[in-house]
Amino acid sequence: MIEVRNLWKNYGDKVVLEGINARVEEGEFITLVGASGCGKSTFLKMLLGTETPSRGQLLMDGQAIKAEPDRDRGIVFQQYSVFPHMTVLDNVIAAEGFKQPGFTGLLWGKKRREARKKAQVLLEKVGLSASAQLYPHQLSGGMRQRLAIAQALLGKPRILLLDEPFGALDPGIRKDMHELVLDLWRTEKLTVFMVTHDLEEGFYLGTRLWVFDKLRQDPQAPDAYGAGITYDLPVGQPDPKELETIEENLKGSTHD
């Protein structure tokens, strides 16, 4: 479904990613880990279409992936993923509205009633129906991310991109969110890319783990070489020893 061919990304002289090759099939759940600044978020942005590769190709179904966000790719950011000026219910209804062509994206009459009903069902499913009339700032961080995920799935994306979605949440709430994501991934048959700081999260969730790290280092010119995928593991049955090795390797890497 997704194919990456010798992908490079650099900003001026600073090389962020180099020589990335990979294939991803429909339905895989890939977690991307690595030290901060290693380019995993940049890779996600290229999948999203807000960044473009400097060299090489990023293909989706054999075609270059579109260089602007569209309905093929849903996204949940760490924050600011929901519309703060709409209630929870309106956030979901608005997502329905954006699917329509037209100038305003507002829904009227029958369409609005249908969207409303659909939204209520969805909110029930993600456990937000009691908060339907609240504004996002009145929700807890976990609830907000629940809403963001529900909203992202409404567009029926083929790929769901998660950019450190649980980075700001408490560990207990994280557990709940993991359940939610795994559940949705199974029932909606999505392809998921998730960037995370937390290696264990990467091991626990998903079917495949990518570790981003620099393959070569030049201490005189730290920006001369970019990161590649140093580990590409299936993680259905996590091996604790492997986790330890990777953790140590990551700690050992000196770049920011």
């Binding site: 807000t50 966000p69 849903g74 950011f77 929901v82 997502a95 699917k99 329509q100 909203q151 992202a152």
Partner: peptide, 9 residues
């Protein structure tokens, strides 16, 4: 927010 709205169509 703008990106999110675009991914919703």
């Amino acid at each position: 927010q703008l990106i999110k709205a675009q991914t919703l169509g």
